[in-house]
Amino acid sequence: MNARNFIFSAVVIPTALFLGGCETPAAYTDSKGTGTVVSLDQIDIQDWNRAADELVASLLASGVLERAPEQPAILAISRIVNNTMQQIDTDSLTKKIRVELNRSGKTITTTTLGLGGKAEDPLAKEAAEMQAMLGGQKKTTTLPYYTLSGKLIEDRARAGRTRQVTYTFQMSLTTVKDGLAVWEDEKQITKIGTKPSVGF
């Protein structure tokens, strides 16, 4: 074995194998586990889950949903203002909250009454109108007792190479009949670091 071959087999091959071994092949991970990616420039799946979970817990613990005259109370989703720098589908937060409130048996969400007259489920709205027309009746809309609105805020700070981002999730539950916010809360999630990481 000459010197060139020796260097090749002793240095180049192990280095290539080592670097190859450092790469992580794609794999499935539990969305609710500790092995998810923690980003510094976006709201991660665990952030949405945590914010929704804590807001639902706060709303249920407040006891305001028990005050509705009819149980379960009818809920409509109002505007969720996105004041972050990200393009966000606010259903990432509101759908989770709706699902959990529905599971609790405290609210049911209307899907035929939406912001600006837009129904989330237009077919259900049309079908109801058709049914009323064929039956010779005037269409009746079930009005919500509560509306849920909110805002997402992003706050960034930097110290040298260390970056910090705080996402604030604000929510209000308003009684339709008087327009009063009977429950309000906000949850903050702060992440700090120099680069994204896997797991927490």
Binding site: K32, G33, V99, F200
Partner: peptide
């Protein structure tokens, strides 16, 4: 349920 997730 949604709340069954790991949190730091």
């Amino acid at each position: 349920g949604l709340g069954e997730m790991w949190k730091p």
